[in-house]
Design a protein around this nucleic acid. Sequence first.
DNA 1: CGTTCGATTGATGTCAGTCAACCCGAGTGG
DNA 2: CCACTCGGGTTGACTGACATCAATCGAACG
Lengths: 237, 237
Amino acid sequence: MNNKTECGCSSCSNQLCTKKVPIFSALNELELNSMTSLIEHKVYKKGEVLFGEGSHLDSLFIINNGQVKAYKYSLEGKEQILYIFSEGDFFGEKNLLRDQEAPYYTEALELTRACKISKKDFRNLLNEYPEIGLKIIEALSERIEGLENTIQNMGTKSTETRMNLALLEFARKFGKETKKGVLVELPLSREGIANYIGVTRETVSRKLSLLQDEGVIEIIGNKKILILDMDILEDSY
Amino acid sequence: MNNKTECGCSSCSNQLCTKKVPIFSALNELELNSMTSLIEHKVYKKGEVLFGEGSHLDSLFIINNGQVKAYKYSLEGKEQILYIFSEGDFFGEKNLLRDQEAPYYTEALELTRACKISKKDFRNLLNEYPEIGLKIIEALSERIEGLENTIQNMGTKSTETRMNLALLEFARKFGKETKKGVLVELPLSREGIANYIGVTRETVSRKLSLLQDEGVIEIIGNKKILILDMDILEDSY
DNA sequence: CGTTCGATTGATGTCAGTCAACCCGAGTGG
DNA sequence: CCACTCGGGTTGACTGACATCAATCGAACG
């Protein structure tokens, strides 16, 4: 039962990924079950690259549990993180219809279980259940909205503000309420945060120290942050 | 025949917008014609706002000809331009499925003719021709890719480079080949360009002057730029 | 216990923002 | 026809914030 490298337990693997994903919410239990045969389960270790930019992709990925960062490199070698995908998120959708190269790298930030559905199977599914198409349009629209906000933030907000917004995002996604405040398990290193908000790792260090001095957060080692005053972060909107 | 404020000529208005748009390319002539009754034609003067951020939207817009900028304001009042839509582009798609508020302002940059299809009609269309759904997914995927690139540029590239990329984009969309180089009719003022790439208007001025000094471009008044050396701009990728 | 990698802190340089003056062309009104 | 104004554009001086470079720290791990 404790097989960490391969998800052998068919009872869990069958249900989880399809049930967790909004895009399949149009399907009922029976239909979901009929899908399970199409799904290939994969486990990725921390640091493992799922696929690289420019590689040929022939399936849709759905995250069962764990975290994956999607990123690109500029010519000068600077990394820009575009997404932090977690449970229930999907990616690789650009290749569902057209044969295209992957537009970014994806790498597991921790032990991650993912489901893969081949492009061909997925297209059949789309034909059979057109509502899935609508769900995808909806999901893509939401993603677009997030990207539009990111662009606005990068274009008009100060680095302080972007730092705050990143913390806020992590708190929402990965934070746990405690008596003293919201405890956040950071998905990224300082350098990762830097590559996410488009500054250098030193700047991230300095801004975090500043926030600690101001009593807004408490830095606990390198991986955790306790947010004492969420309101101040929320003001960044 | 020369009515500039209202497109009265039904023979052109019927065909154009539906034929120009990739998302309807799945339909044949007959099907396109059956659509025309659903379409409302609108003309917007330069500077006119089609809809504002937060307003209730109940239709999809398709640009027949002209240009429209989509933008948001930050709390401090800074404008961030997200898109410059032109002939054949569509927007307002976020509201097709869910009732949502518009996520940005849209404003005509010049005299613009647009077609509107109501959410309800469009949904019926989607049911009748599911291939349109696939086309939309494709178009949204492309838009996502563009946004991802913009984010990478804003996060990792210098302002010089972003300036070059903006020029390149304008050249591709609005440029005309001439003997001396590519003549670009700028869709935006200096301030507009600034709000597009996330810098100040002074910086845009300086960078353009610099490019002129280097012999890469020739500034012709406020509205036109002649690009003498496309290769240098292309190097910005 | 030592090595290593990430994080922090400090000193310095650089580049874009800010503020301000000025320019220039298009309208406008006398 | 000219003077004036007004809006957008350009240019220059200054400032401040982030990048860069470099040294040090410190926790994790063999």
